[in-house]
Write a protein that binds this DNA or RNA. Sequence first.
DNA 1: ATCATCGTATTGAATGACAATACGAGATAT
DNA 2: ATATCTCGTATTGTCATTCAATACGATGAT
Lengths: 294, 294
Amino acid sequence: MRHASPQPAVAVPPIRTPRVGRDSPLFVGSLEKGLRVFSAFDDAHRALRLTEIAAVTGLDKSAAQRFTHTLHELGYLRKDPKTKHYRLAPKVLELGFTYLRTDNLVERATPYLLEAHKRTEETVNLTELDGTDIVYVARVPSRHQITFDVVLGTSLPAYCTAPGRAMLAFMPDEQSRSIAERSNRIAYTDKTITDLNALAAVHARARRDGYALVSEEFSPGEISIAAPVLDFARQPIAAVNMAVPMSRWTLQMIERKLVPVLMETAQAIARSEGGPTGLPPLRRTRLPQTKRAR
Amino acid sequence: MRHASPQPAVAVPPIRTPRVGRDSPLFVGSLEKGLRVFSAFDDAHRALRLTEIAAVTGLDKSAAQRFTHTLHELGYLRKDPKTKHYRLAPKVLELGFTYLRTDNLVERATPYLLEAHKRTEETVNLTELDGTDIVYVARVPSRHQITFDVVLGTSLPAYCTAPGRAMLAFMPDEQSRSIAERSNRIAYTDKTITDLNALAAVHARARRDGYALVSEEFSPGEISIAAPVLDFARQPIAAVNMAVPMSRWTLQMIERKLVPVLMETAQAIARSEGGPTGLPPLRRTRLPQTKRAR
DNA sequence: ATCATCGTATTGAATGACAATACGAGATAT
DNA sequence: ATATCTCGTATTGTCATTCAATACGATGAT
């Protein structure tokens, strides 16, 4: 609201604004709006015209024009000169994949995930927590699945997925409860647990067992198991996960054949930890204060 | 240069600036600077402090502070409260992987890549062109390689890699020459071709053969072959690629066993094209002009 | 043929980004 | 133990940059 409505004659006492987070003078709104353009694209909206981007992002036409122009200029957007459609350019891959390359956990975990895959012939995933969601950060696909799905980078709700539950179970109650509360607890299937107390109960169970088992709470016909990767302070930093179809696996088979591998893998990854917080050896080089900008 | 030096007394005739591209009033510098922060992170710099980010990105301390604050607030950066180190957050994966999900080519090509992998037992890649670079957008890894490397999203120079050469060979001479000229033509090995005319010659050869073969021009001991995926106008839009170690393969074996599969795959992908430009069926829904912003 | 909506370009205005600065904490050197 | 340095954080006045309204021509639907 740039051109605001005229101020009322009576001086409105200035509300004590927090001046933190998004209201901080440090927050650059232009960056946020520009990044919002990326999120306008998804499976259903692969090619968007200017007006569509404006509508989806909630920006007005002018703003959408400026941000698409900028992203196009930087090579993050392609533009069909004929149809005027914007699409994401391959360059955005750089953004996502540098994460995988800079995440020590992925690096350390990969050999163990491969080992687990060899022993079980099933898909093995590594997930991390991002707010109330889990994110798949590594995956060794099974040969059973013919489709070469791109699940890496996918976010799923933590409260109703095995990896999420494994991590929530092993963190302080207040913290897991907070995440559960903030989650948009939809009943994806009729087995989905959405009640906070019921969730606390299954967390306790998972904590006792050392792993979480989630049966058909997110996708029907699928059983998913996960074990947390704990850091030196016994805080969950990730989860190892295997999801199998009920057509090929029974609960008993899973417990006998899969769970031991799962838990060994998670523990092996945890033991491979480098420093206390998993941080790499740091270069403590003093740098000259830069004066120039732009 | 925000606080510019005082204007000289004599009126300097305003230079007729282009007012296009980055100089356009439509270009939002804040967005560009914010994105520059992402590029500060790579394999060698996984955790960065504020000052380091400032130094790497060329921003001053204040700017770095504002952009890191913003990205942190948006969830794209993690911050270690102790060491004050910033790292990329899993959320950046969303950015990269939506590309893979919105790229029709990847979707269409995947089954053919899998088929090619089955027939050869070797790694099969799909790459696209991004400026003077090729970018790996899909990959079916061989079982030979134990390391589960994350090559997806990786950029390599087009001029000295098989996929790049396959694409350059099949585009108009002027265009491929322009790309070659703009490329930073380093001799990665002593076999690397960097001369423009020599490159034109190998392009002609590849055009005649229907595929490109590059032997040890980028990495020693490796032979890489690639065939272009042509669109309806016979313009290259991607390349199918297989790279094999010389320890296991000879030129003759490659030509007999790999090349036929390679070319069939590339052609099959090309034939699977949907629309003329590969664009999906579009929804031509009129949208109400949005007035609000922010 | 008429109308609607699109994308593009321009421009004056003022706000939000900017950069300098100040301060306290922590680390290092003396 | 003290001084010194660099770091990260917070604040503030200033103005350049972003902003949003608007105008125009092209395109396509009715």
